[in-house]
Design a protein around this nucleic acid. Structure first.
Lengths: 198, 198, 198, 198
DNA sequence: ATTTAACCGAGACGGTACGTCCCGTCTTTAC
DNA sequence: GTAAAGACGGGACGTACCGTCTCGGTTAAAT
C-alpha cells in the first residue's frame, strides 16, 4: 500500500500550464494594481476561478507566488543594443530605468515585495528586484571598467548614478524629470573625464 | 427649566495621559522591533493592558498611531552644532544620517510606515520620514547655497550626496561603510570646488 | 470630613420631574413600538437627550424602568360604570379586554415584560400585566360570586371566560372577532343559568 | 481545455452529521435550561467546542437554529393510542399537554421562541410551537366533529378546552392541577352532551 | 447667604459579544 | 495525481453596547 514506486507512469507533478498561467498572470495583475495586500489565495481564487486549495498546493506562501512572478518580471529587461560607447550606452541604460518608473507599477511592486521580504530570508525579494532594475546600468559600467575607461568599484559607480534617481522616485515619491537625468549623466561623464557627447 | 445648555460640564475629551503614554510607547517599540505587521490593536492591548476598544476610540486606524509616533520620533534630530563651514557641517549632518542607520531601526520603521502610507493620502508617512532623515543635510546645503558657496537647486544637491547612501542602505540592504561616506563627501566637495579639508 | 450627618441640607434625591417624565415617556413609546430589545439606555439617551449616566443613576436595570411604567400603564383600566347586572357587566368587562387587544400594543408590551421577567424574581412583570388585563372581568365575577349568583372559584371562572381569548390573541396571534366574544359570553351565562339577555 | 464545468467534484455541502448533532443538541439544552438569551454562538462554541465560525456558517441567525430544533422537538408528540371514544381520547390528549407542562421546559422554550419570532416573519416560531402543543387535542376534536359527535368549529372548541389551561400555565405562571383539568374535561363533555364517563 | 448634597451631562475606560473575513488544513468527490 | 468544493478550527478585524467611573458645572434645599 502506497509503495514508493520508482516513478512509474502517472501524471507529471506540478500545476497544469493552464492553471499556473492563469494564477500567475492574475497574481501579477493584483500585485501591480492593488498592492501586496490583495495578493491572497482568496483573492486569486475570485479572480481566476482556480480553487483555493489548488493555489495552496502549488504556492504555499505568497513568497512562492512572488518568486514565480519575479523572474519573468525582471529577466526581460536586458539590453541588447549597446554600442560600446560609454556615453550612449549609459543614456540607454538609465533610460530604461526611468522609463520603467513611468510605465510600470514599480513602486507598487516594490512595496509588495518589501512586505513579503520575510524575516531575513535571503535573497530578499525587494533587493533582488532593485538589482534587476539597475542591472542594465551595472552592465554598462562594468563593461567600461573592463575596458579601462572607468576606474573604481562598479558598485559605487552604479550607485553614484542611480542612487539619486532611485531615492527620488522610490523613497520620496517624486517624478524624475528627464532633463535632470540628462544633466546627471552629463555631470557623471564629465567628472570621470569621459567627455559625454550627446 | 432645565433646558439643554450648549455645553455644560463633562469630562475633557481625548485619552488620559496615562493611556496615551502607555499605548504610544508600546506602539513605537513594536514598530521598531517587530515591524508594522505587529502594530495591531490586539497586540497593543496585549502589551499595554489597555483595552482594545480604548485603542480604537482614540486611534481608529494604524495611521493615527503612526502619525502620533512620527512627530516625536523625527523632531528630535535637529543639529545645533553647526559651525558654518561647509565641509565640517556636511560631515556632521551626513554623520547623523549614517549613524541613525546603525543605531536606530530605520529600515523596520521605514517599512512600517510604507505599509500604512495609505492610498495616496498625503502627506505620505514614509516620505515624510525620509525627509526627516535627510533634513540635517538639507539644512547644511541650503545654508551653503544661501551663502553663495554652492550653486544649483538644494533638492538636487541633497540627493546627489544622500541618494547613493539611502539607496545602498534602504533599497539594497547593505551596510554603509564610513570610509565610503567620507570618500563621497570629499568627492562632492571637490567637484563643487569647496576644497574639503578634513 | 465627610461625616454622616443626620441629613442636613442638600437637594432632594431622585430624578427631576422633567427628567423622569421624558425618560419614562420615551421608554413607554419604545417598548410599545419597537419591543423590549429597544429598551436600552443608549436608545433612551438618543430619544430623550438625557445622558446615559443619568438613566443608569435612576433606573439601574431595564426592570426598574418597566416597573416604573407598568403602574401607570395598568392602573387606569378600572371600570366604574358597572350596573350590577352580571350579563351587562361581563360584556363591558370583556369588552375592555378585547378592545385593548385592538387599540393598544398589548402583544409587544407583553413580550417586552416577558423578556425582563427576570429569573424567578417576583412579582413577575408579565404575569402582573396579565392580571391587570383581566382585572375588570375578575371584579365582575367576584361581585357575582359575592351576590350568590355564581358558584365556584372566581379564579377558575375568570379563566373559563378569558382563557380562550387570551390564548387566541396572545399565544396564537389571531385577531379575536367580536362575534366570537359575544357567543362565548352568552354560552358562559347559559351554562351557569344566568339567562344573559343582551 | 479546463473550462469551468458546471459542477465537477467537491465535498457535499452542509454541516457534518457530527457537527450538526453536537450543535443542535447543545442548542436545545441551552434553550431549555437557560433561556433564549443563552442561545448565542459564543455560548454554543463554549458548550460544544465547535468553532464560532462554523456555527455562523450553517446557522447564520438564532432563527436558523430554532427552526432546526423546533421540528424534531414538536414532531414527536403524536398520539397513537386513541380509542375513538371522545371522553377517553380527550383525557389522553389533554393529559399529554399538561404532562408536558410538568416535565418539559415549556415556558422557557416558549419564551425563547417568542424572542426570536422575528419581525412579522411567518411562520411565527412561538405560534407554531403552541400549535404543536395543542395538536393532539385538535386531532381528537376534529375526529369527533367528523363523526358528528361534536358541533361547531374545531378551532373554537379546541380553545374552549385548552385556552384556560394555556393561559393559566403560560400567561399566569401557575401550576395546573390535575383535578382542575379533570373537572374542565367533564364540564366540557357535559355541556356538549357527551356524557363523559371517566 | 452659605453650605452641602444631589443632579446632570460629557466622556474615558475595561469588557463582552457581535458578525465578518481570511487563514491554512483537512476531507470528499470527480475527472 | 490534479483539481474542485467545501467543512472546519482559528485569529483578528472593526463595531456596538454594556456598566462603571471620573470630571465639571448647576441647582435646590437646609442652615
Amino acid at each position: 500500500m502506497g509503495e514508493m514506486t520508482d516513478r512509474a507512469g502517472g501524471r507529471p507533478a506540478g500545476p497544469t500550464e493552464e492553471t499556473a498561467g492563469r494564477v500567475l498572470k492574475a497574481a501579477f495583475e493584483l500585485l501591480a494594481t492593488e498592492g501586496s495586500a490583495a495578493l491572497t489565495p482568496v483573492r486569486l481564487h475570485q479572480e481566476t476561478g482556480v480553487a483555493r486549495t489548488t493555489i495552496y498546493r502549488h504556492w504555499p506562501t505568497p513568497r512562492h507566488l512572488l518568486l514565480a512572478i519575479l523572474g519573468p518580471a525582471t529577466k526581460r529587461h536586458e539590453i541588447d543594443d549597446l554600442v560600446g560607447e560609454i556615453g550612449a550606452d549609459l543614456r540607454t541604460a538609465v533610460g530604461t530605468l526611468t522609463t520603467r518608473f513611468e510605465t510600470r507599477p514599480v513602486r507598487t511592486f516594490f512595496d509588495g515585495l518589501r512586505v513579503h521580504d520575510g524575516n531575513g530570508e535571503k535573497p530578499s525579494l525587494s533587493e533582488q528586484y532593485i538589482e534587476g532594475l539597475i542591472a542594465p546600468v551595472r552592465a554598462v559600467i562594468a563593461a567600461a571598467v573592463e575596458r579601462g575607461e572607468l576606474h573604481g568599484e562598479a558598485d559605487r559607480l552604479v550607485l553614484e548614478i542611480c542612487g539619486p534617481l532611485l531615492a527620488e522616485f522610490l523613497l520620496l515619491g517624486r517624478r524624475v524629470k528627464s532633463a535632470e537625468v540628462e544633466q546627471a549623466i552629463t555631470d557623471f561623464l564629465d567628472r570621470h573625464q569621459l567627455g559625454g557627447s550627446t
